[in-house]
Write a protein that binds this DNA or RNA. Sequence first.
DNA 1: AGACCATACCTCGATGCCGAGGTATAACAA
DNA 2: TTGTTATACCTCGGCATCGAGGTATGGTCT
Lengths: 177, 177
Amino acid sequence: MLKLAILGFLHDRPLHGYELRRHLAGLAGHVRPISDGTLYPAIKRLETDGLLVRTAEPGAAAAPRHTLRLTDAGRSALLERLRTPDELDVSDENRWFTVLAFLRHLDGEPAAQAAVLRRRLAFLSEPASFFYDGDRPMGAEDVADPFRRGMLLIARATTTAELDWLRATLAELDRAV
Amino acid sequence: MLKLAILGFLHDRPLHGYELRRHLAGLAGHVRPISDGTLYPAIKRLETDGLLVRTAEPGAAAAPRHTLRLTDAGRSALLERLRTPDELDVSDENRWFTVLAFLRHLDGEPAAQAAVLRRRLAFLSEPASFFYDGDRPMGAEDVADPFRRGMLLIARATTTAELDWLRATLAELDRAV
DNA sequence: AGACCATACCTCGATGCCGAGGTATAACAA
DNA sequence: TTGTTATACCTCGGCATCGAGGTATGGTCT
């Protein structure tokens, strides 16, 4: 998820680590802040894999910065990841939102974008709950506990809103194909 | 989060590992399945910490089961965790939902339940976005990219639904105090 | 000149989690 | 009888992440 986000932000323009940190903090930091000790090793991994290059720029504002730039390999790794997200990218909301944040990078491929949205649509269309009566998913009406009922109400509102948006956006994308 | 969920389920009644696994799969498995290799070490940790005890019950259905039972220490650890969830429990939706799933275990303490809900209310009331124009959070109207606009629309729908539910439930709890 | 802060990067140990593997029992079908 | 499936538990290597720590530079205030 962090890897995807780093590649996604760098696709727009080269950044140095500190800037990247602030972008990441905006995207997910409100919910789950990422720490230095996570970011810098992740950058190093991406560099080792040849997905980005670092160039030192001595004394711009304070300490020497390392500008991070996506390589061609990095660019295609990003696009490939966006075209074929794994199951967790589709089901876990935090990961899914990371995919959504950068899906526009597939801008020449409306059919590929639509395919990704359709996977999310399929996932959200499966009957699911947090609690089960045997095999039957329980709805908010079946639950007496007010807190669990809240969970189900909130989840339903989210799903409804997302399905509406998915269907509208898919219709638009299909017109563009 | 796993720890909290295990303690929460065992508070209702003793379970063996396999049953626990199915309960956990219901609660979060749709979104993010937990694996054997995560569950059993977690159980062992809780046993080492004295929060639960295991008693072998030979050959109930198939292989010998280990029934898991909460100790008094386990029970109070659960209640304490529910009374004072950490910041991540409040901000991260997956963790927050785990708290909600078991908040009823604080059933004699409506004021404590209300205090927890109020922390979530405060979190949701902070102005936040995924994208920023300088320091100003950007709304769906400010974003041209349809995918990023979707993120903001969905997030707004969720927040609205949750705020409605929070306020209604807090009003009820306050009447009970 | 000295103190202090924001910027910028990095390391390291501990932890939690995953996935792939393994073992064993009982029920049921071919 | 043999194979298969469901139940039930466990181990181990590897990896991502966290948090607490550290280093260094340049600008600002006094």
